Simulated scan of single mutants.
Amino acid sequence: MISNWIRQRLQRKTGRATDTFPCDIAPTTRVTAVGDIHGRLDLLHALLPRLDDQSPLVFVGDYIDRGPFSAQVLRHLHHLSDASDRHVHCLLGNHEEMLFHFLDDPERHARLWFRNGGLHTLASFGLKPTGDLEDSRKVMELAEGLRQSMGQDLLEWLTKRPLTWTNGNVTIVHAALDPRRPVEAQDRQICLWGHPMFPRTARGDDQWVVHGHTIVDRPRVRNRILSIDTGAFASGRLTAAEIEDGGVRFLSTG
């Protein structure tokens, strides 16, 4: 049965691409989870006004790379998380982890990050890579330029992002949880990069898991798992899951 809250919001909002899914999910308060943004500030601006502005808002990570406005997305989320009138929680994604690795050891990690959208992020911070990107000196210069362009405040905020957020029987994570282990005993690598048994294997507890990282055509519900990464950087569809006791409502741009 669809709750009165979901029914009221369906009547109140006329945004495109909405779906509802009644289930036994049970956060102690309404919460909204937003999928991977990947530099699409335009889609973030399009989606935010359609969301419940009274409940916690949790972003699943991967704010940067591939799309054109990574710097602007990070700054906007930083501002939102510091605002006093909203409870905004930004989790860490594997693309933010790749950025950290690049800054810590540019020569070792530049190639992987650049292949996965890092060059778009550098450009959004005003850095225009030229010449031989295999050149150690050039790569070191880019890393230092990125550190300076981000600034200490933004960089420190990003490094402090948590891996998970839990409320009631709902846990939000970037990539996956190991279904065999408790939520509080998860490995960082799995939270950020995934697990071969997820989401094919159901958990033994009653916990629902909301995640991004793995692209789906439409938001998917399977084995008490909500998959909400709809490939915003390429598809133009940024998806959110509005969750309350007894049901989920999906909203997507595009």
Rank of each mutant, 00 (worst) to 15 (best):
I2S: 07
W5C: 04
R9E: 09
K13G: 15
K13F: 15
T14R: 12
D19Y: 13
I25H: 09
A26G: 07
V31E: 02
V31A: 04
V31M: 05
V34K: 03
D36Q: 04
D36K: 01
I37M: 04
G39Q: 11
R40A: 02
D42T: 03
L43G: 07
L44V: 12
H45D: 08
L47C: 08
L48H: 05
P49N: 08
L51R: 10
P56R: 05
L57S: 06
L57D: 03
V58M: 07
G61I: 01
Y63I: 06
I64E: 00
D65G: 01
R66F: 00
F69T: 03
A71N: 02
L74A: 09
H79D: 14
S84T: 11
H89P: 01
L91H: 02
G93R: 00
H95P: 04
E96V: 01
E96A: 03
L99D: 01
F100I: 13
F102L: 05
L103W: 07
D104I: 10
E107V: 02
E107Y: 03
R108Q: 15
A110F: 14
R111H: 14
R115G: 05
R115Q: 15
N116M: 05
G117Q: 05
L122H: 03
G126F: 11
D135V: 00
S136Q: 05
K138E: 05
A143R: 06
A143Y: 10
E144M: 08
G145W: 08
L155A: 13
E156H: 15
T159H: 13
L163D: 13
N167T: 10
N167F: 01
N167Y: 02
N169Y: 01
V170I: 12
V173H: 12
P179K: 01
R181W: 08
V183G: 01
V183P: 01
E184V: 07
R188K: 15
Q189T: 14
C191W: 03
C191Q: 06
C191R: 03
L192T: 03
M197N: 13
F198C: 06
P199G: 06
R200D: 14
A202V: 11
A202Q: 11
R203A: 09
D206M: 08
D206W: 11
H211D: 10
G212E: 02
T214L: 09
D217S: 15
R218W: 11
R220N: 04
V221M: 11
V221E: 03
V221C: 08
N223Y: 06
I228V: 05
T230F: 13
G236Y: 07
G236C: 09
T239R: 07
A240C: 14
E242K: 04
I243Q: 00
E244C: 11
E244S: 11
E244M: 13
L251R: 10
S252M: 15
